[in-house]
Simulated scan of single mutants.
Amino acid sequence: MHLYSLPSDVFLVIRRKKTTIFTDCKDSATVLELKKIVEGITKIPPADQRLYTTNSAIMEDSKTLQDYGFNATTSKAQNPTSIGLTFKLSSGEFEDLELCPYSTPPELPDVMKSQDANGQEQAS
């Protein structure tokens, strides 16, 4: 009996400026395959895309997500791995990597705040 690991799903958040793309693919998928997924959403061809690891290193088309340490353990649905995305400008240069911070939700109105730790109204 031979034991081998089956490809597993990797959950990713691909971010560019104010755009966020949530996707999943197999850990055996190449960076080029991931760029083709992005192309399906953005209509930007893979040659005009650049993907970046969490430490801002440029990802190579021929490497797999697994090569970058992305697997089912490190990239879960509830905690996806963040990847940066830039596009090629008309000058032929790639734009700078820019990730806008996520917005924070507004504070809850007073009527929705609980009166004590367990959310029960206090008797007077």
Rank of each mutant, 00 (worst) to 15 (best):
residue 32 L to F: 15
residue 42 T to P: 01
residue 35 K to P: 00
residue 45 P to T: 04
residue 85 L to W: 09
residue 89 L to R: 14
residue 63 K to S: 10
residue 50 R to F: 03
residue 93 E to T: 03
residue 57 A to R: 14
residue 26 K to Q: 14
residue 51 L to I: 10
residue 73 T to A: 10
residue 24 D to N: 15
residue 22 F to W: 10
residue 88 K to Y: 03
residue 30 T to P: 04
residue 73 T to Q: 12
residue 81 T to D: 08
residue 92 G to K: 08
residue 95 E to I: 03
residue 47 A to N: 11
residue 100 C to K: 11
residue 67 D to R: 02
residue 68 Y to K: 06
residue 54 T to I: 11
residue 25 C to L: 14
residue 94 F to Q: 05
residue 60 E to D: 09
residue 70 F to V: 04
residue 74 T to P: 04
residue 24 D to F: 13
residue 83 I to Y: 03
residue 24 D to M: 13
residue 39 E to G: 00
residue 65 L to V: 06
residue 98 E to G: 00
residue 65 L to P: 01
residue 63 K to P: 00
residue 95 E to D: 14
residue 23 T to V: 12
residue 50 R to L: 08
residue 68 Y to F: 11
residue 53 T to I: 02
residue 67 D to W: 02
residue 101 P to S: 08
residue 65 L to T: 06
residue 35 K to V: 04
residue 99 L to S: 07
residue 44 I to E: 05
residue 28 S to H: 07
residue 75 S to V: 03
residue 51 L to Y: 10
residue 31 V to K: 00
residue 26 K to W: 08
residue 94 F to H: 05
residue 46 P to H: 05
residue 97 L to Q: 11
residue 56 S to F: 06
residue 55 N to K: 13
residue 92 G to Q: 06
residue 27 D to Y: 07
residue 94 F to D: 05
residue 76 K to Y: 00
residue 73 T to V: 11
residue 84 G to S: 12
residue 89 L to V: 02
residue 30 T to K: 09
residue 73 T to K: 12
residue 71 N to I: 02
residue 67 D to I: 02
residue 23 T to N: 09
residue 22 F to S: 14
residue 86 T to K: 12
residue 98 E to L: 11
residue 44 I to P: 00
residue 63 K to V: 01
residue 47 A to V: 10
residue 54 T to Q: 13
residue 96 D to F: 03
residue 66 Q to K: 14
residue 96 D to L: 05
residue 29 A to R: 04
residue 33 E to I: 04
residue 45 P to I: 05
residue 60 E to W: 00
residue 26 K to L: 15
residue 88 K to P: 01
residue 41 I to V: 08
residue 30 T to N: 09
residue 64 T to P: 02
residue 69 G to I: 03
residue 73 T to S: 09
residue 66 Q to I: 00
residue 43 K to F: 07
